[in-house]
Design a protein around this nucleic acid. Structure first.
Length: 561
RNA sequence: CGGGGCGUAGCGUAGUCCGGUUAGCGCGCCUGCUUUGGGAGCAGGAGGUCGCAGGUUCGAAUCCUGCCGCCCCGACCA
């Protein structure tokens, strides 16, 4: 491609509305432009990369026996009502105004619809069906460029099995395919066990990339590879020690002492001797949640312990419920349900609130004084705690979810009546899995991991072109003819070359654009070098420069790429 | 949806508090000449409903009201 004919609108300055590096660089290098919040147009350069990612995904999906579909994004609302997901998605789903259609945010329903009545025998399974297609989600707050959009490309795949063992196998196949896809794309990722959330189903794993732009928080152990979303992560943090002798319960006047830190300072004790109370509302009933010291309540863990959605009690409800404000609440004298973090199990000689403002209680023995207490893992893991598996230090950080694989089970097949006959002629719901990859996120994450202060750094696999050919002064005949020759030969050999043949552009501008766009190799043809019969090759990633005889340039490029 | 910020030419911005020339600057764009290995120089030029609507005023980018859009933090999130 000749730069003079290409539409690659590069920008010298960062766009004002972008924050993260990948977003800035995609806009600056002319890959994308925003149309509206969370809605991006891919320009030719960006679309070239996207197509390469799609092709890798397609190859690996085909390699595990996947069959590619192309389903409509416009769906009758009725089918979504059958699975209860119109309500489940709520405002996240786009609704068409002048007909009873919705824009599909995913495709479990539609794939199941097609399986229903067609996959009727165990003999026809397993099946893996997938597509690479646009999804629509009315995100309340799109952000980070292409990472969270209202319209985005997803590779979504669905497996249909006649047994749970079959599902395990399909799930394994996807796990392997995903690893190959991300490896081939050159992305450094890790896999975490996750809560399956509103998708339903049992096992699920997320493929994550470490990034400050991420929306998930994960705990990761470098030495053994343990990784888990903080929603479910555990650590080896020691339980509170039970002392041999339990003291008696006694009240302490603690004026203006609100936080655990203040309490520790006031009494000269360690935070491990304290129990913090939080009040949550579950099914319109209050629940007191007791945590050790400054441990944070993990609401996801709390919800799975209780088996339903919770909300923190409002500050003005607290006094009515407990008799005290936040900071003075404790387990003694509470008549409603009390649950505590496992770390506190059978703890004694603890300090907690007295349910009376400005008072705390010491000498609490949970076993003796709070007999109905229930214990669950409720705390949020912190950086520096010991890995639950190997005991090394855990690191907690933000990450972007690139892909997610789920064992769905029979939720959708049951709701939509997708049944098959087994070996015994008995009717059963098809056992399903569902597997997604955010295609633009693969692109954005690659860039997040591969850039410097000059621009993007492409490996040849995803690079929109492999080679930048820079004709430094296109008004000089020797430069032009050398460039044309190289361009012709490389193109003939099947290389994708972006040939900067712009006539009235300064050398500096060409260098800057080449570094910004970031193709792996730059062939630099200038009058100066040609006088000595030399052409320069620059390797974008390392900045290394090689001077090569004109006659050897093609061989050298082939060797380097 | 809560909190904060912003909206002036294709991009980046000054001016807004305290109303008053023809709305300024840099980049980019067009023409000509020069320059040509790391974002050139000179000269000339085009490009603006100052987000939209209403109001106050002799006069509004500037003050008031409403709306829209964009970004960030939070909530939410498959």
């Amino acid at each position: 491609m000749r730069f003079s004919k290409a539409f690659i609108p590069t920008l010298k300055e960062d766009p004002a509305d972008s924050v993260i590096p990948s977003h800035k660089l995609m806009v600056r290098s002319g890959m994308i432009r925003m149309l509206s919040a969370g809605i991006y147009s891919f320009l030719p350069l960006g679309y070239k990369v996207l197509k390469k990612i799609i092709e890798i995904i397609r190859e690996e999906m085909d390699a595990i026996g996947g069959q590619e579909f192309h389903l409509p994004a416009l769906n009758p609302k009725e089918i979504w009502e059958k699975t209860g997901r119109v309500e489940a998605f709520g405002d996240t789903m786009f609704h068409v105004k002048n007909r009873d259609y919705v824009l599909a945010p995913t495709h479990e329903e539609i794939m199941t619809f097609h399986a229903r009545g067609v996959l009727k025998s165990y003999k026809e399974m397993p099946q893996i069906w997938y597509q690479i297609q646009t999804k629509f989600r009315n995100e309340p707050r799109p952000r980070s460029g292409v990472i969270r959009g209202r319209q985005f490309l997803m590779k979504d795949a669905y497996s249909f099995d006649s047994s749970w063992e079959g599902l395990d196998k399909s799930y394994e196949l996807h796990d392997k395919a995903y690893r190959k896809i991300f490896d081939r794309c050159g992305i450094k990722y890790f896999v975490v066990g996750a809560s399956s959330g509103a998708m339903g189903g049992s096992q699920s794993e997320e493929f994550m990339v470490k990034s400050d732009a991420g929306e998930d928080t994960v705990a990761y152990c470098e030495s053994c590879g343990y990784a888990a979303n903080v929603e479910v992560a555990q650590s080896k943090i020691p339980a509170v020690k039970r002392h041999e002798v339990s003291k008696k319960v006694y009240e302490i006047h603690t004026p203006n002492v609100k936080s655990i830190d203040e309490l520790c300072e006031f009494l000269g004790i360690d935070e491990r001797e304290t129990a913090k109370s939080r009040i949550y509302i579950f099914n319109d009933e209050p629940v007191l949640v007791l945590m050790s010291g400054n441990d944070e309540v993990n609401e996801t863990k709390l919800e799975s312990a209780l088996g339903g959605a919770v909300r923190p009690a409002h500050p003005d409800e607290l006094k009515e419920i407990t008799g005290a404000d936040a900071g003075s609440i404790g387990p003694i004298g509470i008549k409603f349900r009390i649950i505590a973090d496992l770390r506190l199990k059978d703890g004694n000689n603890l300090y907690s609130g007295a349910n009376k403002n400005d008072y705390h209680i010491g000498g609490i023995d949970l076993k003796r004084d709070v007999p109905n207490i229930e214990y669950f893992d409720l705390r949020t893991v912190q950086t520096g705690e010991e890995c639950i598996k190997c005991g090394s230090k855990l690191e907690v950080f933000k990450a972007i979810e690139l892909g997610h694989i789920f064992k769905l089970g029979t939720k959708y097949s049951e709701a939509l009546g997708a049944m098959f006959l087994d070996e015994n002629g008995k009717e059963n719901p098809i056992i399903m899995g569902s597997y997604g990859i955010g295609v633009e996120r693969v692109l954005a994450c690659y860039i997040e991991q591969n850039y410097d202060d000059r621009g993007i750094i492409w490996d040849k696999t995803l690079a929109p072109y492999q080679i930048s050919l820079l004709g430094l002064n296109m008004k000089k005949e020797p430069v032009v003819s050398a460039c044309e020759k190289i361009y012709g030969e490389l193109t003939q050999k099947g290389f994708e070359v972006l040939y900067d043949d712009r006539k009235d552009v300064q050398a500096g501008v060409k260098f800057a654009d080449a570094d910004l766009i970031g193709l792996p190799l730059q062939i630099i043809v200038g009058e100066r070098g040609l006088k000595e019969d030399l052409i320069e090759i620059k390797i974008r990633r390392t900045g290394e420069r090689l001077k090569v005889k004109t006659a050897e340039i093609i061989d050298k490029v082939q060797a380097l790429i």
